[in-house]
Design a protein around this nucleic acid. Structure first.
Lengths: 195, 195
DNA sequence: ATGGCGCCATTGTGATCACAAGTGCCGCCG
DNA sequence: CGGCGGCACTTGTGATCACAATGGCGCCAT
């Protein structure tokens, strides 16, 4: 899952097959699928590795998030009732828990769950599918981002998102989502000024 | 390729294997891959069909295009030199040719080639990959859209795009791309007012 | 000692096979 | 004559096998 593999590792079909107690065939299909989604990469010779993303690629993916996620949030807004906000609050607490424990994997997972909980309400499966593949590609990077920042609290943009949701304020929500999604990228991307 | 299959058709692994002179294994992988990209759909029991898109899904995909493609165009703009514009003009002629011949398949293909030629200049492979999967999913719909409109000329938005490119006018380019991408959707989506 | 060459193990690809689940059809019974 | 049950065929899944290419390792020559 998200954040469990470090970039640059290299895997083998037979190894994965044994690890999961399967034959090569299903493993191959899974690997090919993941590689089309960008979660894995196949070298020209067919070796399987976790892709090493360069800064340009990361910036692109972040821009994709900043383009699509505010739209998803805006579409979810009219359908967001109290139960959803409660649930997002709960997830936010889980994020805080993972943060103080320094559990990168859970932190990342809960973070995405926070966003997904909202976007599920958008009734936009195609957009959700696209953004999930973007998340998948960002997985290793998010882990590194987390480790370099070693946060102790949930992102403050999350609280802003929740406030905008309660207020039914679409522009504020769009902005908060975009802020959250872009958070930390200046740090990770260095000086190159990410669009 | 794009626009060759009508929605609702159903395919078999063995049929495709024979058709392409391959074994089932590579065909299976290709089908699985295409299904994760949304170009094909697997029923719960595993049957392979070309997905029947409802209006909501089409609207989502169109919005994805309208979010991402202007960004790609804007990124390509500073790098668009005369050779590119010439090439796009040539492709536009091919579109016109296919239009008068009523060749839906070539029309669609050249249309996408027109966009791709521009976006390739954006140096944004991740975004390009995402938009290509969106195109793939829209394939069958684009064909139906073409057949219902039976155009005789290339979209006028294409000319506006070329003009904006020559002028180096980013806002105009973004708008032209968005217009082109949204073209015809009101017609296809009926009265529901596509965002 | 080190760099280049060649061999061997590793690894992905494609093919074929056995199996299980599903579908559609045909016949039987009401 | 129509509805229902069972059977055969179709079809996807998973496993195993043969092969080709690649990468790594050791050996030899300089």
């Amino acid at each position: 899952m998200h954040g469990e593999l470090m970039p640059g590792e290299h895997l083998t079909l037979r190894g994965l097959a044994e690890e999961y107690g399967l034959s090569m065939t299903p493993v191959r299909e899974a690997v090919r699928r993941l590689s089309t989604e960008g979660a894995l990469a196949l070298t020209a010779t067919g070796r399987i590795t976790t892709p090493e993303l360069d800064a340009a690629r990361i910036e692109e993916l972040a821009v994709l998030r900043s383009l699509i996620e505010p739209e998803l949030a805006a579409r979810a807004l009219p359908r967001a009732h109290f139960a959803l906000i409660d649930r997002m609050n709960a997830i936010n607490s889980s994020i805080a828990e993972a943060a103080v424990k320094g559990d990168a994997c859970r932190y990342i997972r809960h973070n995405l769950e926070f966003h997904r909980a909202l976007y599920l309400r958008a009734q936009a499966p195609a957009m959700l599918a696209v953004i999930e593949t973007v998340w998948l590609q960002l997985g290793p990077t998010m882990r590194r981002l987390y480790e370099e920042q070693s946060r102790q609290v949930p992102p403050r943009a999350h609280r802003v998102m929740l406030a905008a949701l309660k207020a039914g304020d679409e522009p504020a929500l769009r902005l908060a989502v975009k802020t959250d999604v872009t958070r930390g990228l200046r740090h990770l991307l260095g000086q190159e000024g990410a669009g």
